[in-house]
Nucleic acid binder design. Structure first.
Length: 281
DNA sequence: TACCAGGTTCCGA
DNA sequence: TCGGAACATGGT
């Protein structure tokens, strides 16, 4: 067992988990059990620190997963430098957010499930897939389940995915799993491409549109020049930026032109605030 | 009961 | 190319 301890100012577990980037966690007492692929850790933010507990040989993995090498105080200061009252409030409330460096395959499946869906249901569906198809993993004496491999998902019937609560998204996930199994799609090979090119490749997948592709470039390829626009961001655009555009792709471009390479984290500050904390603006 | 949720696909003009 | 209906399902 290994414990990683960091100052909580720019790393809050609640902020990081409640900004809608990630669905594979559950509360367990004062801490959160977090799963990525087939690896687990516990995380807790106390009065002063955030503490991660994981297997010794996976400390490097989780250090990368939580993006611990990036200086988020600089990102926060950059957000304040735009001098926008609404954004200042968002950054102040969300400065503990870190953009997780997620597994590409798992993140893509998760965000296909996310379309026209709500976060509690998305979490439930992903947990169902793991519980029923995931490899058993023992972590600190507990028996837990990994995220299922693509070849296992590919062998399921569409009925299974409907039982998991995927609804009409069932066929999307099945088709993607089959293509991954056959090697028709290689997500890792896209890593070296520019952000726009990655998105162009991702939207060729059935069930993946502009918004899901933006989430995956941000959360799994860690491209901060991504700005996913969903119903919440659209509200922010209209209510807090006085925007009039209707096309979500154009709204995304509007924000990327405004915030450049900080777009991804600023998007997360704003989503987190609007969904969880908004008072009057 | 109708509307909403981290949208995308499909169809007709 | 563009606008709008259809798509599953649980929560409020």
């Amino acid at each position: 067992m290994e414990k990683i301890i960091l100052d909580k100012t720019f790393f809050s577990i609640e902020d990081t988990l409640f900004c809608g980037q990630f669905f594979a966690y559950e509360k367990s007492g004062n801490r959160y059990l977090i799963r990525s692929d087939d690896k687990f850790c516990y995380a807790e933010t106390t009065d002063e620190n955030t503490e991660i507990v994981c297997n010794e040989d996976e400390a490097g993995y989780f250090s990368n997963f939580f993006d611990l090498k990036r200086d988020y105080s600089a990102v926060y200061k950059k957000a304040l430098s735009y001098d926008l009252p609404f954004l200042n409030a968002c950054a102040e409330q969300g400065k503990g957010i870190r953009i997780l460096r997620q597994e590409k395959y798992e993140n893509l499946i998760s965000f296909i499930i996310s379309q026209n869906n709500n976060i509690p249901r998305i979490k439930k569906s992903i947990a169902y897939l793991c519980e029923n198809l995931g490899e058993e993993i023992t972590f600190l004496g507990e028996k837990l389940k990994a995220f299922p491999k693509a070849r296992v998902l590919a062998d399921q019937s569409e009925e299974f995915f409907k039982k998991a609560g995927l609804g009409y998204r069932a066929s999307y996930v099945k088709e993607l799993a089959e293509k991954l199994k056959n090697g028709d799609i290689d997500l890792e090979s896209l890593s070296t491409l520019p952000t726009q090119k990655i998105k162009e490749e991702l939207v060729k997948i059935k069930g993946v549109g502009e918004k899901v592709a933006s989430c995956v470039t941000l959360f799994a390829y860690n491209r901060f020049d991504s700005f996913p626009v969903d119903t919440w961001i659209e509200k922010i655009y209209r209510e807090n930026f006085g925007g009039t555009l209707l096309d979500r792709k154009k709204i995304s471009q509007f924000f990327i032109e405004k915030f450049g390479d900080d777009s991804g984290i600023i998007q997360q500050y704003m989503f987190h605030y609007k969904r969880n904390f908004e008072k009057e603006f």
